[in-house]
């Protein structure tokens, strides 16, 4: 199992486009940081905003950064790993080994979530370094939707919690992508269907809007507004998509 995960990781990072997307991501995050720095004000709703300083800066980078991650970077990396190998036939080469079929998709999930973690943590580091060097320095700060003043440690803890939830939302997208790529026979269709599900879910139910506009919903959830509903739908999506795609993967014919 460990060898499978390692080979999967090597294959993901061996593709040139993963590296290019990683660098592109960092460059875009820098541009968004510079853009937010123009205002020194962070929006968390249509008309609600808060003054930014070094301690509460990093969550607001994700407001635009999440759309780039969810609509462009995640679908390409996920579908390349989950669907493109299968449809192009490259998957046949390493499924010769005597592993259980279920282990292949589990190793893919683990490798992809590690890759995703690298992306999210790099955004966290870049935005925090930018915030601590270039934004106005304070010892205490206000946070969105939460009463009271926060010092350095508690504000950092809040930011880490924020990025953890963002990571879970991206895992949701991983689940959706794996379900789509098990069902759809073609890589292009899979990319477009994943994006269509992320965008189209808003029309189905307002509660799914965290898939596309994550920051507002995370602020609400951390501030105690609809927290239970948010976490139930988040974990529900992850469990349902992952389990169903695993079952379908197992049931589908062995020799493609």
């Amino acid at each position: 199992m460990k060898a499978l995960i390692l080979s999967e990781l090597e294959r993901i990072w061996g593709r040139k486009r993963t590296g290019i997307l990683f660098i592109l991501n960092i460059v875009l995050i820098f541009m968004i940081c510079a853009f937010v720095n123009f205002y020194k004000v962070g929006f968390y709703g249509p008309n609600a905003y808060i003054k930014l300083n070094s301690l509460n800066f990093s969550p607001f980078v994700l407001r635009e950064g999440h759309i780039i991650l969810a609509c462009i970077i995640c679908p390409i990396i996920f579908i390349d790993c989950l669907n493109y190998e299968k449809t192009s036939g490259g998957f046949r080469l390493y499924m010769i080994r005597a592993y259980d079929k279920f282990e292949y998709i589990v190793s893919k999930w683990i490798a992809l979530s590690i890759t995703l973690f690298i992306f999210v943590i790099s955004i966290f580091i870049v935005s925090n370094v930018f915030g601590f060097t270039l934004m106005p320095k304070t010892e205490y700060t206000e946070l969105v939707n939460v009463q009271g003043e926060y010092g350095l440690i508690s504000a950092l803890l809040y930011n880490i919690k924020f990025y953890m939830i963002e990571y879970m939302i991206l895992l949701c997208i991983l689940g959706i992508a794996s379900l789509v790529s098990v069902l759809v026979p073609n890589a292009v269709l899979a990319v477009i269907a994943t994006i269509a599900v992320i965008v189209g879910s808003i029309y189905v139910w307002d509660g799914f809007s965290f898939l596309l506009f994550s920051t507002d919903e995370i602020f609400n959830a951390l501030g105690g507004i609809n927290t239970a509903q948010f976490f139930i739908s988040l974990i529900g999506i992850i469990l349902i998509t992952v389990l169903s795609s695993g079952v379908i993967w197992k049931k589908k014919g062995y020799y493609f």
Partner: peptide, 18 residues
Amino acid sequence: STTVAAGANIAIVLFLAM
């Protein structure tokens, strides 16, 4: 490759819109 083509096209349309 096809995934890159789909991603790049969508990224450019999104960029032109945003």
